[in-house]
Simulated assay, not measured.
Amino acid sequence: MDLQACTEAIRAKVGDDSGLNATLKFDCGDNGVVFVDAVTVPNSVSNENQEASCTITIALEDLAALLNGQLNPMNGFMMGKLKVSGDMSVAMRLQTVV
């Protein structure tokens, strides 16, 4: 799954009102970013590299596995496949969406 496919998958999961009420960025390094603005309704998902209240640093293939249900978010965190910086409570609320 490439970055655009991950972006579309996140957009579908977030929908118009995810209830996250925060900004979130998935940072896939050289492969790009997926930025989720869940403060405004409807929520928006883009590939703009903006400041976010929570940033999840993750390899693109691990993000794809997370979105496909092949990687449990908590296991990914414990195994070091994803790193969270900023507001950890946003990452915890994300589990209800992804």
Score class of each variant (00 low, 15 high):
Gln95Glu: 08
Val98Ser: 04
Lys13Ser: 13
Cys28Phe: 05
Pro42Tyr: 04
Ala91Lys: 00
Val36Pro: 08
Thr96His: 08
Thr96Ala: 10
Lys25Arg: 14
Pro42Cys: 08
Met74Ala: 12
Ala38Arg: 02
Ser18Glu: 09
Lys83Gln: 14
Thr96Val: 03
Leu60Trp: 05
Met1Asn: 06
Leu94Asp: 01
Gly76Cys: 00
Ala5Gly: 11
Asn21Pro: 02
Asn31Asp: 14
Gln50Glu: 10
Met88Lys: 12
Ala59His: 15
Glu8Phe: 03
Asp30Met: 12
Gln50Val: 08
Asp87Ile: 06
Asp27Asn: 13
Leu71Thr: 04
Ala5Glu: 15
Met78Leu: 14
Arg11Trp: 07
Gly32Arg: 07
Asp27Cys: 13
Leu71Cys: 14
Met88His: 11
Gly19Arg: 15
Leu66Asn: 05
Asp37Arg: 09
Val34Leu: 07
Phe26Ile: 01
Val45Met: 07
Lys13Met: 09
Asp30Ser: 11
Asp2Ser: 10
Asn75Gln: 15
Phe35Pro: 03
Gly80Ile: 03
Gly76Ile: 02
Met74Lys: 10
Met79Gln: 15
Asp62Tyr: 00
Lys81Tyr: 15
Lys25Leu: 14
Phe35Ile: 05
Asp2Cys: 07
Leu67Gly: 09
Val36Gln: 10
Leu63Ser: 12
Asn68Val: 01
Asp17Glu: 14
Ala22Tyr: 15
Met79Gly: 02
Ile10Gln: 13
Ala65Pro: 03
Pro42Phe: 12
